[in-house]
């Protein structure tokens, strides 16, 4: 017992010699400051990092989850970054350089759920190509970005994107070989190409050219099953099949335009009874406003 009491005395003695605390932010240990910064919203972090160099480096060392980040860069009209973590904040800029400086900070600290990029300025492209930091995003949507910009952004993105959406409207050529070859696209669960018919996207993705009927014709020797809605083909991998589905329901009927397609890699053992007949869900993902007038939607 005396041993225990000696130990206790020794411990309490050690406690007694610690310094008396001061009570200011500047006297807080770094780990506490980090913890506090971790509880701040983006605007407060931005303000704090402008107070002093030391605070800036601390703020920059803390990651922040950002639900949505919209980057618009079409000067002089729409040059801003809008961020939503807890609350939404919009940051406007007078120059591409100023905006890119801000974006570099945001990319460094941000872990994005959804990242929307609409940039068509040469200055941005050059900055992106030179940028060596990594962007962490679950979902990226490119709008009004040319292929070089898309490639530059993808090159700088962590390899764990779940969903990539890009718009091919108005493009005569699209370097799908290069985009498809990026590990980000290869590993994404979902790759969505709006206006794919203006490109050779389907051909590149599933080695086909053109429409549903052409898909059938092209893979005639590999067809496992076919219907109005689906074509299932075998692949070189005996464990995997590819399913091309056409979105058809009470609203989207056979002669409806536009037509909606999706390609799925499925298990070769999957039964037809396991098919997902609810195309509304994935059409809405492509076009969120599509079923607005549908009475069943209310």
């Amino acid at each position: 017992m005396s041993f225990d009491i000696d130990k206790l005395a020794e411990k309490t003695e050690n406690l007694s010699i610690d310094p008396v605390y001061d009570t200011n932010w500047c006297d807080m240990p770094t780990e506490i400051k980090r913890e506090c910064i971790g509880k701040m919203e983006i605007n407060e972090r931005l303000s704090l990092r402008c107070t002093a160099k030391a605070e800036r480096s601390l703020v920059d060392s803390q990651k922040i989850n950002i639900r949505r980040c919209d980057i618009h860069g079409t000067p002089p009209f729409t040059q801003y970054v809008s961020l939503t973590s807890g609350i939404e904040s919009t940051h406007r800029f007078r120059s591409a350089n100023e905006q890119f400086k801000f974006m570099k900070y945001i990319w460094k600290v941000g872990v994005f759920e959804n990242l929307y990029i609409s940039l068509c300025q040469l200055a941005f492209k050059e900055e992106f190509i030179d940028y060596s930091g990594k962007i962490s995003a679950k979902s990226i949507e490119f709008d009004y970005c040319d292929e070089e910009m898309i490639l530059a952004v993808l090159k700088n993105t962590e390899n764990n994107i779940k969903s990539i959406t890009m718009n091919a409207q108005g493009r005569r050529t699209y370097p799908f070989d290069e985009i498809l070859a990026t590990s980000q696209v290869q590993n994404a669960n979902y790759w969505h190409i709006e206006y794919h018919q203006q490109t050779d996207a389907l051909y590149k993705v599933a080695q086909i050219d053109g429409s549903f009927a052409e898909f059938l014709e092209h893979f005639a020797d590999r067809i496992v099953s076919e219907s109005e809605k689906r074509v299932r083909i075998s692949t070189k991998n005996p464990d995997r099949h590819i399913l091309l589905e056409r979105g058809l329901d009470d609203v989207v009927q056979v002669h409806y335009f536009p037509q909606y397609f999706r390609l799925l890699v499925i298990s070769a053992n999957m039964n037809e009874s396991e098919y997902d007949d609810n195309c509304k869900q994935w059409i809405l993902k492509m076009e969120p406003e599509f079923y607005v007038d549908d009475p069943d939607n209310h």
């Binding site: 932010w25 506090c36 605007n43 407060e44 402008c50 107070t51 002093a52 605070e55």
Partner: peptide, 21 residues
Amino acid sequence: VAMMVKGKSPEEIREIWMIPT
């Protein structure tokens, strides 16, 4: 602590937390 500086500008934060320039 984080709430203390909610909505504050850099100057205000510097003043509240006595952060030297």
